[in-house]
């Protein structure tokens, strides 16, 4: 995994209190990692804080999996 992927994974583990092996690229925050809608709002905030980017609400709605987050943040960093 890339540096960005590692940092995303760390945030997800911390905020959702899930085991590291569950946090795969395909894992859906809500369906696989037990998040509710408020958890996902908080996750997006944590990504913004960690990576110093702004994730607009319409973009945030498309971030459903760990991989979605990594892809968005890699693009933002490029």
């Amino acid at each position: 995994m890339s540096d960005i992927a590692d940092r995303v994974k760390k945030i997800v583990i911390e905020h959702l209190g899930v085991d590291a092996e569950k946090v795969t690229v395909e894992a859906s925050f809500i369906d696989d990692l037990g998040a509710d809608s408020l958890d996902t709002v908080e996750l997006v905030m944590a990504f913004e804080e960690e990576f110093g980017v702004e994730i607009p609400d319409d973009a945030a709605e498309t971030i459903l999996t760990v991989g979605d987050a990594v892809k968005f943040l890699e693009k933002a960093a490029a």
Binding site: L38, V41, E42, M45, E48, E49, E54
Partner: peptide, 10 residues
């Protein structure tokens, strides 16, 4: 305001 947690109120 964008850093105020969704869990702040509940």
């Amino acid at each position: 305001p964008r850093r105020v947690s969704p869990f702040f109120i509940p």
